[in-house]
Nucleic acid binder design. Structure first.
Length: 134
DNA sequence: GCCAACGTTGGC
DNA sequence: GCCAACGTTGGC
């Protein structure tokens, strides 16, 4: 099982929206690197939900419930979507500033490559984040 | 609102 | 195949 961070602009699809939907398809990725990450996702993988722009924080987790398939919102099989399901809220969300302060998290693509919308994280990084959200 | 970083496009 | 121009994203 793998861990990921998926990014969303709260103005287009926020955390409240995710929680209300319970399950949604993660579509609209139009970047090859992000797409490749989507393709690597397996059922049961955990995705941390990061909100960009105004929010800049990780607020909770969703679970991959369906592996990649052609993006239903575009007539071009270059692009894929996955289905994700709401899993849990963090008691305390973790901000980008906190992530940047933490040396163990300094390799996160979130910090190094801020425009990537789907990125893998290691188990160690995942565990470190868990410590911060307890 | 600005700008850096990055990806894509298209002319040569 | 290179690179300049342009568009988009996202942090500040």
């Amino acid at each position: 099982m793998s861990y990921w961070i998926i990014k969303s602009d709260p103005e287009s699809y926020g955390w409240e929206h995710m929680k209300k939907d319970k399950k949604t398809y993660w579509d609209g990725v139009r970047n090859y690197q992000a797409r490749n990450n989507l393709k690597l996702m397996k059922e049961g993988d955990i995705c941390l939900f990061y909100l960009s722009n105004k929010e800049k924080r990780i607020v909770g987790e969703v679970e991959v419930v369906k592996e990649s398939y052609p993006d239903p919102t575009i007539d071009d099989d270059t692009w894929v979507a996955v289905d994700v399901q709401y899993l849990k809220d963090y008691n305390k969300s973790i901000t980008l500033a906190e992530i940047k302060k933490n040396k163990k998290l300094s390799d996160l693509a979130l910090v190094k490559q801020s425009r990537l919308s789907v990125m893998p994280i290691t188990i160690m990084e995942y565990k470190e984040i868990q410590k911060l959200v307890e």
